[in-house]
């Protein structure tokens, strides 16, 4: 359940921004979470509401943008979709693949007042 800690990280980063950007309330938080990041999206939603309580993000809507896993095959040079780190190339069967996307865990945007 490290999603709880990840949400604490999100709220801390938002609190940093309150000082820099001068806002008093956050109504929406957009996160980008990769398919290979080891994050359970539902656990993230569950944790966020609890962690954000009594902070500037209390009651904020959490929008999670899921980023698909993408990798390059060093053998056949194709760029392919992957759902796990150990997937073999669907074109030629080679592994390991070089992961290009899907490991992200980012706050992308905030809607603030």
């Amino acid at each position: 359940m490290h999603e709880m800690s990840l949400c604490e990280g999100v709220v801390q980063l938002i609190e940093d921004q309150t000082r820099k950007q001068g806002f008093t309330k956050v109504s929406t938080v957009w996160l980008e979470i990769g398919a290979l990041a080891g994050v359970e999206i539902e656990a993230m939603r569950f944790s966020f509401d609890a962690v954000a309580k009594d902070t500037v993000a209390d009651g904020a809507r959490l929008e999670i943008i899921e980023i698909a896993g993408r990798a390059r095959c060093p053998a056949c040079k194709q760029t392919v979709q992957v759902t796990a780190r150990y997937d073999a190339c669907p074109e030629c069967g080679h592994y390991p693949l070089e992961i290009l996307a899907g490991e992200e865990m980012r706050i992308s945007e905030l809607e603030v007042q």
Partner: peptide
């Protein structure tokens, strides 16, 4: 309301 671009790693 305004939108702020943050682009920060959660970790």
């Amino acid at each position: 309301s305004r939108i702020l671009r943050i682009e920060q790693d959660i970790l």
